[in-house]
């Protein structure tokens, strides 16, 4: 139970520490505002929660739930950084890595990538599972933007950014199960046939290396990038985009 004196009814505990919250906030929102780190991939503070990656799964009064979708309530006992939950998170990350083609040494997003940084923080040293090596050709049809689907983790942040912020509905998710994939809403299915611009929020929201500006490489050298310098767990460094 909360022992906070400032807002006696508006706090829950996260791994034993009091976390105050505002009405309507989710556990993840309140935790991050209070400077805590709950690992996440599909959640971004600017967008409605999606609850799909499950990396932010916590135990709320003993029951598992996605911290990005569960509303904070007074007196909840939330566990996040436990050996059990962190082991599950590592497994989720390993599955995401083998499902795509995550060849970090050749990726311009390396060092600025939320998936990579989250895996570093989770202590993911190897993939554990067999690699899928899926065939996902790049879309280089747009003059300014490259799409490399090899790295897509289906977080849908580009779908939300294009629909909710840019008002263009350029991206969507198609298919089911293991065939689920990101598609471009244009007659040819190519990004070059859309009116997307580099100024769109969707062009900068990708937490991994799918949506990249063309002709921009190694502006910051490997080793000096966002997550090379500070871990993803540090306040202010928890979003890659």
């Amino acid at each position: 139970m909360s022992t906070s004196t400032a807002t006696p009814d508006a706090s829950f505990t996260l791994d034993g520490e009091d976390v105050p919250f505002r009405p309507g906030e989710t556990i993840l929102q309140a935790a991050q505002r209070a400077g805590h780190y709950v690992p996440h991939l599909c959640w971004h503070p600017e967008f409605h929660p999606h609850g799909s990656c499950r990396v932010c799964t916590v135990k709320v009064n003993g029951r598992a739930g996605a911290a990005c979708t569960v509303q904070a309530a007074a007196g909840l006992a939330v566990e996040s950084s436990t050996d059990e939950l962190n082991a599950h998170r590592k497994t989720l990350l390993q599955m995401l890595f083998v499902e795509g083609n995550h060849f970090c040494p050749s990726c311009e997003k390396s060092g600025n990538c939320l998936l990579q940084a989250t895996a570093y923080e989770a202590g993911m040293e190897g993939p554990h599972f067999e690699e899928f090596y899926p065939d996902r050709p790049v879309d280089a049809s747009h003059p300014d933007i490259l799409l490399d689907f090899d790295r897509c983790i289906l977080c849908e942040l580009c779908v939300r950014a294009s629909a909710d912020v840019d008002g263009r509905n350029i991206f969507a998710i198609a298919g089911h199960g293991i065939d689920t994939h990101l598609v471009v809403n244009s007659p040819s299915g190519k990004l070059g046939d859309t009116d997307m611009t580099l100024a769109d929020r969707a062009a900068s929201i990708c937490p991994v290396g799918v949506i990249l500006p063309k002709r921009r490489g190694f502006a910051v050298p490997i080793g000096e990038r966002r997550y090379d310098v500070k871990t993803v767990a540090e306040p202010g460094n928890q979003e890659a985009s």
Binding site: V98, H102, F103, C104, P105, S106, E125, P127
Partner: peptide, 14 residues
Amino acid sequence: ACAINGGLPAQRNH
């Protein structure tokens, strides 16, 4: 990287 996930040589896999 190559021992762990195939790395550069595995780029021929598709």
